[in-house]
């Protein structure tokens, strides 16, 4: 089960609203390399891991990704807070407003709703872990693109933190993949 902690993993305190950045950052909420997809992908893959090492790592990283969903959500909320209708229109978020008002809704930067096919599972633990390594790399690249698009330190701080987490997660998944490959290869000898 999960328990809520009334805090973010890394603080978000954005003082200047920025609708255009909000539209771009949406992709890390409900886009193909977003935190929601990552969380669900890892948590779905836990069940076929061959040993406790894999089950632990996928549970722990999947749980952290849920905390990242909350960081991204807090950023979106603060970036859009107090937006006028004109500002929403100018940033191309008027259709978002028409459908959802000021509620958060997971979509990508183009407004396409979150799609369950973002979640990559293959029923093969090596294929699954390698898709997780790919997911971490794609998310890291997306964070770099987002960082390219702003100079606001209030936005860059959390983006930089989240990007760095992708690097650590990639490393841990790689270690797990290498460990399983080693066992597999030894058993084939």
């Amino acid at each position: 089960m999960w328990k809520y902690e009334k805090k973010l993993q890394y603080p978000v305190n954005i003082k200047k609203k920025n609708l255009k950045m909000a539209k771009c950052i949406l992709t890390q909420y409900g886009g193909p390399a977003g935190e929601l997809a990552a969380a669900w992908q890892y948590l779905d893959q836990r069940y076929i891991m061959p040993d406790d090492r894999g089950k632990a790592l996928l549970t722990d990283i999947g749980t952290e990704e849920l905390a990242h969903v909350e960081i991204i959500s807090a950023m979106l909320y603060q970036l859009m807070k107090g937006a006028t209708k004109e500002e929403l229109k100018e940033a191309g978020l008027d259709s978002q407003y028409a459908q959802f008002g000021m509620d958060l809704f997971p979509s990508d930067a183009f407004g396409n709703p979150f799609n369950m096919t973002h979640i990559k599972v293959a029923g093969d633990y090596i294929a699954d872990i390698e898709s997780d390594m790919g997911a971490e790399q794609r998310a890291r690249a997306t964070y770099e693109h987002l960082m390219d698009l702003t100079d606001d330190p209030d936005i860059l701080g959390p983006l930089s933190f989240l990007r760095e987490r992708e690097i650590v997660h990639y490393q841990r998944f790689k270690e797990l993949r290498d460990y399983y490959l080693k066992i597999k290869n030894e058993s084939l000898k």
Binding site: R163, E164, I167, V168
Partner: peptide, 19 residues
């Protein structure tokens, strides 16, 4: 502040130093 406890794994993007 880096989002990473491991110096060996750390690399920085865009920012000259972590906030």
């Amino acid at each position: 502040i880096r989002g990473n406890m491991f110096p060996d794994l750390f690399n920085q993007y865009k920012l000259s130093r972590p906030y």
